[in-house]
């Protein structure tokens, strides 16, 4: 009894010593301030999880802030990171414009800035080191290419589009990439386009209105899976078969999309990989080591048609 208690005490003491010894090491470790957009979808949740896990694994101390979809919150978070003198700031910009002032402050404080998964518009590209993330324009192109290959027939194809949040990079670029590819094919036309704010509720509401005003819809192109899932509910309520009567194309490839695909209600989802944590941590280290980095680093992404969904589902992390 006594010996065991002593051994416990000594173990605690050893632990304390080890802890104090470890302190200076962790203090010299890198600190990363990360300003997340907020919890908007399963995609974003996976993105957050990946960054948190990768930071822990890489021994980088992470200061995490959730902006709840508001730019002013993100700007506040970045300012507080500057005040706390973190080593590197990374953030996923809510919107594309309006970052110059706060990024100039970071630059003056000599804190390198990395953008993740969304780009910004700025006249001064030296405000950030690099941008890691998905190429949204390419995702839009992939979605359009899949459509050109898989929607057969000779007649006109009327496409309705559910856009993401107005002014956000994925909404602008996914639209651009898609339009770029179908421009050369006159039988494919976008007949209606409205924002669904990347949410299920809005996706459903807008699709309901589309279905009432327009009986002639062949394809739905949704800028994310959540809006597509909302729209699927609207299409079912209209007595049509989603995936058959209307071909549905969406982007992100989250779990919910795979469930819809396995049920035969969604035709294809273009992957937008949120698991960029490990890659981001490597970049943080490279930036601190003073390595030259390209201005744009892309994540690897696939296209998942309905047929592959059941096989792929168990492998999905988000």
């Amino acid at each position: 009894m006594r010996t065991s208690r002593r051994s416990v005490i000594s173990a605690i003491a050893a632990g304390l010593v080890a802890g104090t010894l470890a302190m200076p090491i962790s203090a010299s470790a890198l600190t990363l301030g990360f300003a997340q957009v907020g919890a908007e979808s399963e995609w974003r949740t996976a993105n957050t999880g990946s960054i948190k896990e990768a930071a822990k694994a890489a021994g980088i101390s992470l200061k995490f802030s959730d902006a709840q979809q508001k730019q002013e919150n993100q700007i506040k978070a970045i300012r507080s990171f500057i005040a706390q003198k973190v080593d590197v700031i990374a953030f996923a910009p809510v919107v594309t414009t309006g970052w110059d002032t706060v990024l100039a402050e970071a630059k003056r404080a000599k804190i390198p800035v990395i953008l993740t998964d969304r780009s910004i518009e700025t006249k001064d590209p030296s405000l950030y080191v690099t941008m890691i993330g998905s190429d949204f324009t390419e995702e839009g192109r992939k979605a359009a290419k899949w459509m050109l290959e898989n929607v057969k027939g000779q007649g006109d194809v009327n496409i309705v589009e559910l856009q993401g949040t107005v002014g956000s990079a994925p909404a602008i670029e996914r639209k651009k990439g898609f339009e770029e590819v179908i421009k050369s094919e006159p039988r494919f036309k976008i007949t209606r386009s409205q924002t669904g704010d990347f949410t299920r509720a809005k996706g459903k509401e807008v699709m309901e209105a589309f279905l009432k005003t327009d009986k002639n819809i062949q394809v739905l192109y949704a800028h994310n899976d959540d809006m597509a899932i909302g729209a699927i509910q609207a299409i079912e309520a209209a007595g049509m078969k989603p995936g058959k009567d209307i071909t549905i194309i969406s982007i992100d490839a989250v779990k919910g999309a795979f469930e819809a695909m396995m049920a035969g209600k969604l035709n294809v989802s273009v992957e937008c990989n949120p698991l960029l944590g490990p890659q981001l941590m490597n970049i943080v280290k490279d930036v601190k080591a003073g390595k030259q980095l390209p201005k744009r680093i892309n994540t690897e992404e696939g296209v998942f048609p309905m047929e592959t969904a059941a096989k792929e589902f168990p492998n999905r992390k988000y």
Binding site: G38, Q69, D197, R200, A201
Partner: peptide, 14 residues
């Protein structure tokens, strides 16, 4: 009604 309608609860947007 809102939660049931979209089959999910979104603390930010609901």
């Amino acid at each position: 009604i809102i939660t049931s309608n979209v089959k999910s609860a979104d603390a930010n947007n609901a």
